[in-house]
Simulated assay, not measured.
Amino acid sequence: MYELYELTLSLDPALRHALDDLADASGRRTEEVVLEAVRRYLGEEGAAVRAHAERLALSHAGLLRRLGE
């Protein structure tokens, strides 16, 4: 089991309206749309950061190897 945390987010009226419209059109609660968006963003950004870290590690492999000795 995990603990849930509540988050308060301030949105400008146009963004809130677009969010409400999307939730209504898709038959979901606004909170569900936001949660899906956050999960998707974290997945995409996490993948981008990992890919960048791998590129850095490859380009500096020699230095990293020497530091580990």
Rank of each mutant, 00 (worst) to 15 (best):
55 R>T: 10
16 R>I: 00
57 A>T: 04
8 T>K: 10
21 D>W: 04
31 E>A: 12
29 R>K: 13
18 A>M: 01
22 L>V: 02
60 H>Q: 12
56 L>I: 10
60 H>Y: 13
67 L>C: 06
51 A>N: 10
2 Y>V: 08
13 P>L: 08
33 V>C: 02
25 A>F: 07
8 T>D: 09
32 E>C: 00
55 R>W: 05
48 A>I: 07
46 G>I: 04
20 D>K: 04
67 L>E: 05
14 A>I: 06
60 H>A: 14
13 P>R: 13
32 E>F: 02
69 E>A: 06
21 D>P: 00
14 A>T: 12
29 R>L: 05
7 L>R: 11
58 L>N: 09
6 E>Q: 12
9 L>H: 07
62 G>F: 13
3 E>P: 07
18 A>I: 00
39 R>W: 12
49 V>G: 01
42 L>A: 03
31 E>K: 08
9 L>V: 15
65 R>P: 00
25 A>H: 10
51 A>P: 09
66 R>V: 04
61 A>W: 12
53 A>L: 10
3 E>C: 06
47 A>L: 12
4 L>G: 01
50 R>F: 06
49 V>S: 08
57 A>S: 05
10 S>I: 09
22 L>Y: 07
48 A>E: 08
11 L>V: 01
18 A>E: 03
25 A>L: 05
11 L>G: 00
6 E>S: 14
59 S>L: 07
2 Y>G: 09
65 R>E: 09
59 S>R: 15
49 V>R: 15
14 A>H: 12
21 D>A: 14
6 E>L: 07
62 G>P: 02
41 Y>H: 13
8 T>H: 11
48 A>M: 12
30 T>V: 06
21 D>E: 09
9 L>N: 05
44 E>V: 14
28 R>T: 01
15 L>I: 04
6 E>W: 07
25 A>K: 14
17 H>E: 11
